[in-house]
Amino acid sequence: MTKGQIEAKLSEAISKFEIEVMGRGPKQIRTFILQDLIVVRLNGFLSPSERKLAESNQGVELLKKLRTTLFENARNDLEVLVKTVTNTDIISIHSDVSTRIGENIIVFTVGENLEDKLKAKLGD
């Protein structure tokens, strides 16, 4: 598979994961493979009630705690999903939510330079 195909497959799998685990999928998702990083950018994933909750500082704090807890509880499943698609070990996962613009960024650190590995496969 090409880099673009893997990025698309990861976007599709993570979007499905978001629907199944977090209760709602994003309106837009983009995945980027950059050396030993996989960066996933999800936009439009907050529900109307979450957007309303995010109008106050206390609501933002509550929403972030909830999303972080859900994410941490499903971390192993997400790790397996990404490892299955990329065939590489996951070293770490980081995630942050912007309630102001309804964006979530997930960054995976993988065990090898995935970008170079994919380029080498294309050269074979």
Rank of each mutant, 00 (worst) to 15 (best):
D124A: 14
S56R: 04
Q35M: 11
E7V: 02
K83M: 14
I90Y: 05
L63V: 03
E72S: 11
V107I: 12
K83Y: 04
S47L: 06
V110D: 00
E79Y: 03
N57P: 09
T69G: 08
E12Y: 07
K65F: 11
I19L: 10
R30H: 15
G111Q: 06
N104A: 11
G44P: 00
M1H: 12
N113D: 14
A13G: 03
L66W: 13
E112V: 12
N87D: 15
I101W: 07
D89Y: 12
F17Y: 09
G23Y: 01
K16G: 11
A54I: 01
R30D: 07
Q28L: 11
R67L: 09
T86V: 13
L70F: 11
T99G: 03
F17M: 05
V60I: 14
I105Y: 08
Q58R: 15
K52S: 09
R100F: 14
Q28K: 12
E55Q: 12
V97P: 00
N43S: 09
E20R: 13
K3L: 03
I29A: 03
K52F: 13
L78Y: 01
V21C: 11
L46K: 03
M1W: 09
N73Y: 06
P48F: 01
K27R: 11
K83Q: 13
V97Y: 12
E55I: 05
V21H: 10
K65N: 15
L10I: 11
I106S: 01
K9I: 05
L53Q: 08
I29E: 00
V85N: 02
E55G: 11
L10R: 00
T86F: 06
I93H: 02
L66T: 09
E72T: 14
E20D: 13
Q58F: 14
S49E: 14
F45Y: 05
L42Q: 07
L34Y: 11
S15D: 13
V107E: 06
P48R: 00
E115A: 08
I19E: 14
K121Q: 14
F108Y: 10
S11C: 02
L42R: 03
R24L: 04
S98N: 13
L70H: 09
G44C: 00
G123V: 15
R100M: 08
S47R: 06
T109P: 06
K64P: 10
Q28Y: 11
E103N: 04
D124W: 15
K119S: 09
L81Y: 01
L37E: 05
K3Y: 01
R100E: 14
V107Y: 02
A54Y: 00
V107F: 09
Q35S: 15
R51I: 09
I106F: 02
F32G: 00
K83F: 06
D89F: 10
I33L: 01
R41H: 14
Q28P: 07
Q35K: 12
S11I: 03
